[in-house]
């Protein structure tokens, strides 16, 4: 395996049983790889299957066929066929994900939400909180919010919590689903810098960015997902 993330001939369809079993083909023959220290951006019009690809890579969506190989503990793991326990282990140690929306857990403070992935990997709680504080400060989240659960935060504030949570670990592969969608220019710039730092550290990044400015600032390669789209096959 030459790259931390390699995708080969992946196909995905949905069968909608509640709509008379209609079958929606989403993508087919998806093949690409993400080298270490590079940021690959998924491009193409909306609805073409970009988010579905990220969700397959993270394990939220199943895969009809093909392979999703990730370098985990020095050996390739095929996430398309891995059992749940392996997927969880890969998520904990190797594969990070910054989604568009924060899944809010009641009563957990923003600081602890951010620190959690580090704690899950065995870092002491104080240390993890220090790192979390540094990141939140960098993303200009007012310190008065740190101790509060993010449920009542604005979209932009929640997104920054989410970004900090995704960037706090040194996962070797990071998936980014529109991380800058609801950020202002200043914070977008912070995220761009953070992505550059990840690249410099050798992280393989795969992202969706609708914001062209950010995309141009971070992308090493833009992959047109239209080439994999299977939508026209349906009907």
């Amino acid at each position: 395996m030459t790259h931390p993330l390699e995708v080969a001939r992946v196909a995905k369809s949905f069968t909608m049983h509640l709509r008379d079993g209609i079958r929606l083909d989403v993508v087919r023959n998806v093949s690409f790889s993400v080298p270490a220290g590079k940021c690959v951006v998924l491009g193409g019009p909306s609805g073409v299957g970009k988010s579905s690809i990220l969700k397959m890579l993270y394990g939220n969506y199943g895969v009809d066929s093909g392979e999703i190989r990730i370098l985990h503990r020095g050996a390739p793991v095929d996430l398309a066929t891995a059992d749940p326990r392996t997927v969880l282990e890969v998520r904990r140690e190797t594969l990070g994900y910054v989604s568009q929306f924060l899944r809010v857990v009641p009563r957990v403070s923003a600081l602890d939400v951010v620190a959690e992935p580090l704690v899950a990997r065995g870092t002491a709680a104080d240390q993890a909180r220090d790192r979390a504080a540094t990141l939140l400060a960098r993303l200009n989240l007012p310190e008065t919010l740190w101790a509060l659960p993010p449920a009542t935060f604005s979209g932009g504030e929640q997104q920054r919590v989410n970004i900090a949570r995704g960037f706090i670990t040194d996962h070797t592969v990071l998936l980014l689903d529109e991380p800058t969608a609801s950020l202002d220019a200043r914070n977008r710039q912070v995220v761009v810098e953070m992505i550059r730092e990840k690249k410099a550290a050798g992280t393989a990044l795969l992202g969706i960015f609708h914001d062209e400015e950010v995309r141009d600032a971070v992308a090493d390669e833009i992959l047109d997902v239209s080439a994999f789209s299977a939508r026209e096959m349906a009907a």
């Binding site: 069968t15 394990g59 939220n60 969506y61 199943g62 997927v87």
Partner: peptide, 13 residues
Amino acid sequence: GLTDRVLDDPREP
């Protein structure tokens, strides 16, 4: 399967 996957991509009717 994985809780995320069953809830985000349920297969069975």
